[in-house]
Design a protein around this nucleic acid. Structure first.
Length: 750
DNA sequence: GTAGGGTTAG
């Protein structure tokens, strides 16, 4: 980003003399200047900045348009600082000059800079407003785009289409439609844009209806429909449109190739590809992606090697291909070899590491990214934020939030929702709420994220408050909202409330109960000890119970020590999902807690027979941008001596305060003392101990565990939070626990 | 010489 004082200085020098649109420096342009201006533009467009500069320097006289050509060239070649200093040296800049700079700032610097230039512009024309409309729309700031649209004194076709596209590109097709219906003079671009809006949402019937009604169709109209059907997986219809099209261009052909590719029809894709009259890099990329999608990396590489010309996307395709095939070394090799990297390359490499569980590498790469000064675009922001959410890298996520603000990106739906989810998944409720309050465009996803977020943290009251807020808006609650609402009731013990929502949701919100809703209800009733009612609901519902529902019942049996019911639930689960290790462990724990060691032993034999591997439990936490991982007992952490010694001491102190270790929770039937020893060194305990030692007092200790928290650790953390005066936020595979002053936000209701 | 629609990679 540019320091705004440079911008202010550049503009201040200019503002004493308002220039007029189209004004030329020398009054009359001679043919030679025009010819040379054209040559400059040609060089600039081909990326030959040096050539253009030589021409410019050699010119005996220059017009303002000469400067403008240079300015546009610098801007489109990513040379923003040079563009800015050139702008300062233009003797009489006209509105063209200002518009060019405005566009450059909006595209590659920040909207804050663009806005301040806009405010200082002495003369504005419709292009000025159009730049503001489209750049705000591209950043997801639809209401600001609308503000500039309404502000524009005269609107031309581009203004109307820009506003239409602002709605369409942000998924707000309804508002686009309303705008469209408000007048009649629309051109083919407008029809195509609105059609594309429906296509993006997969609403092909409405797109087709527009297509049939449009007064004049051009090749883009056909392409929109072909690719729409292709992306929706309807290759028959896509092919029909392709065959019917009166004109085809590279886009049409590529859409079909990519359609076949994405729907797993590799041979058809190749046939069309081979038949193409001409190909561009995108067509090649689509075919390479076809092989990549089938994990045929050798074939993909073969094609990649013979491509006449590769762009960043070609490299990115190979990079993600290797990443998805789990070939992380190859992926990294491609990443290091690429001639240019863009935001996608960084995001793909980051995602590869993150999804492979290499959080260390993920963070390292992100730090490197910051050092490289890489410009992060909106989707990369969203992708990075969700990566941070997955690994609960809060500090990383907060840095991203900071850069998001600096870049002038508003909290539009995509980035805003990703940010919300990040804060919730990292256990930072305050910032999640703040981000939500600041979002300018809330959609159902935003509301759902907040409701489900609060629910998972055991903040049932807050979740239901937000739900009430949502009901006061025009955004309609959907089935996902109600899953969140029911989960909120379940996780907070609001049993009666949950039951009443469940039975009234069809009447009040038009939501029909899906299996997910029943799962919530079984969970809710089961946790409350109303096991008979839970079973009754399962019998009466219109679906066959699935493994998750039996799992909810199994969990309830564990809390309420009903090993008979637990056993029959577990048997059903073994039938449905024989490899689900978590269920064997859960059932073992139920047997163990009632001292049925023989049955515990049987479970272990069963797991061995069926080749089910128990997922090893581990926990991790972030301290100063570094992720520390802990696993049970065998801590390899460099500071393990210190951690163990501290744990011993802590253990003594919480015992004095009344803590009794619940040896019953452990899977193995070993002697008590030994059991206690194993419990003491559960991964989450090691992590919490490390946190207390390394995180300053006053800041919460955030720990993430890949499995469900063990009951004994849960109990111990309550004591620890009181004795150490710390807030401990634990994310386990099921939900969040906030330990504070001796109690947990789950109300021991997990 | 500035602004608007359709194709690839996440």
């Amino acid at each position: 980003m540019l320091p705004s004082r440079h911008l202010r200085a550049a503009v201040r020098q200019r503002s004493h003399r308002p220039p007029a649109a189209g004004e030329a420096f020398s009054g009359k342009l001679d043919a030679d200047v025009i010819r040379r201006n054209k040559a400059i533009t040609v060089h600039m467009r081909a990326g030959r900045v040096g050539e253009a500069e030589r021409l410019f320097d050699a010119m005996p006289s220059r017009s303002t348009s000469t400067y403008n050509a240079m300015l546009a060239g610098y801007a489109s070649n990513g040379r923003l600082p040079v563009a800015l200093s050139l702008f300062r040296s233009i003797p009489r800049p006209d509105t063209f000059s200002y518009n060019t700079l405005l566009h450059a700032l909006a595209v590659s610097s920040s909207l804050t800079d663009a806005r301040s230039l806009f405010d200082q512009m002495p003369v504005k024309d419709s292009v000025t407003y159009n730049v503001m409309i489209s750049s705000h729309a591209n950043h997801g700031l639809v209401s600001l785009a609308r503000k500039y649209f309404d502000l524009a004194p005269e609107k031309d076709a581009v203004s109307w289409n820009g506003m239409l596209a602002a709605y369409v590109r942000n998924g707000r097709v309804q508002e686009a439609r309303e705008l469209f219906n408000s007048r009649t003079e629309w051109d083919a671009i407008s029809w195509n844009a609105l059609m594309a809006g429906y296509v993006q949402l997969g609403r092909m019937a409405e797109a087709q209806e527009l297509f049939d009604r449009m007064p004049q169709r051009d090749v883009v109209s056909w392409n929109t429909m072909v690719s729409g059907y292709a992306r929706g997986g309807d290759m028959v219809e896509a092919r029909r449109m392709f065959d019917m099209a009166p004109v085809r261009d590279v886009f049409t052909w590529t859409a079909v190739v990519s359609g076949y590719a994405q729907n797993g029809m590799l041979e058809d894709a190749r046939m069309v590809f081979d038949a193409m009259p001409e190909r561009n890099p995108v067509s090649w990329n689509a075919m390479v992606a076809a092989y990549v999608q089938r994990r045929m990396m050798e074939k993909a590489k073969e094609l990649f090697d013979i491509m006449p010309c590769r762009n960043v996307a070609s490299w990115n395709t190979m990079l993600t291909g290797y990443a998805q095939a789990g070939m992380l070394d190859e992926a990294r090799a491609v990443f290091d070899m690429m001639p240019q990297k863009d935001a996608v390359s960084w995001a793909a490499m980051l995602a590869a590491y993150a999804q492979g569980g290499f959080s260390e590498e993920t963070l390292q790469l992100f730090i490197k990214m910051g050092r490289c000064g890489e410009w992060v675009n909106r989707s990369a922001f969203a992708c990075l934020l969700s990566t941070c959410a997955d690994i609960a890298a809060l500090e990383c996520g907060m840095q991203l939030h900071g850069r998001l603000i600096k870049a002038g990106y508003g909290l539009g739906r995509f980035v805003g929702n990703a940010l919300l989810a990040m804060y919730f998944k990292c256990g930072n409720m305050e910032d999640a709420r703040n981000a939500f309050e600041q979002m300018e465009d809330r959609d159902a996803v935003s509301w759902n994220t907040v409701i489900a977020g609060y629910a998972r943290h055991g903040f049932g009251k807050e979740a239901l408050e937000v739900f009430d807020m949502m009901r006061a808006t025009s955004t309609k609650p959907d089935d996902i909202t109600l899953v969140g609402v029911l989960a909120a009731c379940s996780h907070s013990g609001l049993v009666e409330k949950g039951i009443s929502y469940f039975y009234s949701m069809h009447r009040d919100f038009g939501v029909t109960a899906k299996p997910e809703h029943y799962t919530c209800m079984i969970d809710l009733l089961g946790r409350a000890g109303r096991l008979d009612e839970a079973q009754g609901l399962m019998k009466d519902m219109p679906f066959e119970p699935d493994a998750t529902m039996w799992g909810a019942l199994l969990g309830a049996s564990r809390i309420h020590r009903n090993s008979e019911l637990g056993k029959s639930a577990a048997e059903k689960i073994f039938e449905l999902e024989p490899e689900n290790a978590g269920m064997y462990v859960l059932l073992s724990n139920i047997y163990a807690s009632s001292g049925k060691w023989r049955d515990v032993g049987k479970m272990r034999v069963m797991m061995e027979d069926r080749g089910v591997k128990k997922v090893p439990g581990f926990s991790w936490m972030e301290v100063q941008n570094k992720v520390h991982t802990f696993s049970v007992g065998d801590c390899v952490h460099p500071e393990k001596e210190k951690i163990y010694a501290f744990l011993e001491d802590l253990d003594m102190r919480i015992k004095k305060a009344g803590y009794v270790s619940a040896t019953e929770m452990v899977l193995h039937d070993v002697e008590d003392e030994e059991k206690e020893h194993m419990l003491k060194y559960h991964s989450e305990k090691l992590a919490v101990a490390y946190g207390i030692l390394n995180i300053p007092v006053g800041r919460p200790i955030r720990v993430i565990k890949n499995l469900r928290v063990c009951g004994d650790c849960h109990n111990a953390f309550k004591y620890i939070s009181a004795i150490e005066g710390r807030l401990i936020i634990l994310r386990d595979s099921n939900r969040f626990h906030h330990f504070r002053d001796g109690s947990c936000s789950c109300g021991d209701y997990w």
